[in-house]
Design a binder for these strands. Structure first.
Lengths: 228, 228
DNA sequence: ATCTAAATGTCGGGC
DNA sequence: GCCCGACGTTTAGAT
């Protein structure tokens, strides 16, 4: 890992073209040759960058100024960095990182709802998680109190795309006479938060919306946190 | 901008929980207090981070080790960083960045296609760019050789979402008797690259797919690059 | 402020 | 390897 603080001007050409005027910035060069250009603001996304695999060639232009050329090994993307003043330049051997351990993503939400399908609709029982279809797996396939099949699509944030996804599944599932024997397959759109337009679209298509309280659901598993 | 190279262990709690075991990493602290944790590999995304607005509190734990607590000002997200060895710690005043100038994104592709609608389908003429509807603007509204209205949805990468988007527009547009007077409004899905599933879905719905060659299209504007 | 669509998206899993 | 969907998506633009 090499860290360079320098006044620089940058041009990127690849999937698009982009330009950064001369200014003081931080250049991070990782062990694999990838480059990140950061300013002192904005979020975690660099102003400009080159993803690995790529190679960095250090040269000098006609005016005797340092110029880096970073080229992607796979595509023909190039990053040209002209350095006018180098304030700092240091390298450190960090070794290989053990990596990030995550917990609490959609998969976890799906696990909880699979254990407590009745929290979505009274009398609902689980048939299968990740129920396979030709266009991808349905998050939860359930059956309601009167035996009608219910497809559940789970999202952390429910927007229009999720409703479209569930609609595609329902269209396909309803072609299966076995599933729709007791009546058309119903859809439940479950999310921690449902956007107004998504709710309108879902309602228009006869899909039930269910706002999921993650913490309350987690409490069902833990008697000390039981809510009712 | 403060750059710290240190052996550290990190815990994040917020929309999810995450843990990073003890290892040597680079910590980037921006002027607004935001923190980025980078390893010597991966892409531009940090292993962990805290987005602004947030505040960094530097403390010492029971064992006398340095511990940073970064808390979001808006949400209750927290990042706890335990530093066991600080290899390097430096600060630099970078000033405000003039920002990135981009060129060649979807908007530009739309401009080119608006100038050359016939490249999508012979005889196609432009009626209006960003044709307004109740659920959002249609990228290009055109008319074909026989006077039938044609709605064009433009994407850089054509996947299923784009087909759904165009389908919604077509559904709405076809309710307008003025537009569908000469026959139902047709749809063209134009993209630099169209994913197989998107193509299948589009074809199934009677939507025409058009793969756009950006460079060739740009050449049409420049006589020196004219292709035919 | 809120919401929607784009992104040089990136990342991880399944086939 | 490609394809597909989630992401602490982030970010920019429009309402």
């Amino acid at each position: 890992m090499r860290l360079v603080v320098a006044r620089c001007q940058i041009d990127y050409a690849g999937r698009l073209t982009a330009h950064l005027p001369l200014a003081l910035r931080v250049l991070m060069i990782k062990a694999d040759g990838s480059v990140l250009v950061h300013s002192d603001g904005g979020s975690y996304k660099p102003l400009n960058w080159m993803s690995p695999p790529c190679t960095l060639r250090e040269g000098v232009d006609e005016d005797g100024q340092v110029e880096w050329t970073v080229t992607s090994t796979k595509t023909d993307d190039t990053l040209r960095i002209l350095l006018t003043d180098v304030v700092s330049d240091s390298s450190h051997d960090l070794g290989v990182d053990p990596g990030l351990q995550k917990d609490g993503v959609e998969k976890h939400l799906q696990e909880l709802l699979a254990e407590h399908p009745a929290s979505l609709d009274a009398g609902l029982t689980l048939v299968r998680r990740e129920y396979p279809t030709a266009i991808g797996p349905v998050d939860l396939m359930c059956r309601d109190a009167v035996g009608v099949s219910v497809a559940v699509e789970i999202k952390r944030r429910g927007d229009i795309d999720g409703v479209e996804q569930l609609t595609r599944y329902l269209e396909l599932l309803n072609r299966d006479p076995l599933l729709s024997a007791k009546g058309p397959v119903r859809g439940i759109f479950a999310a921690q938060e449902i956007k107004p337009q998504a709710r309108v679209l879902a309602t228009d298509r006869g899909i039930t919306c269910a706002v999921v309280d993650y913490d309350a659901l987690r409490g069902l598993d833990d008697p000390s946190h039981r809510l009712f």
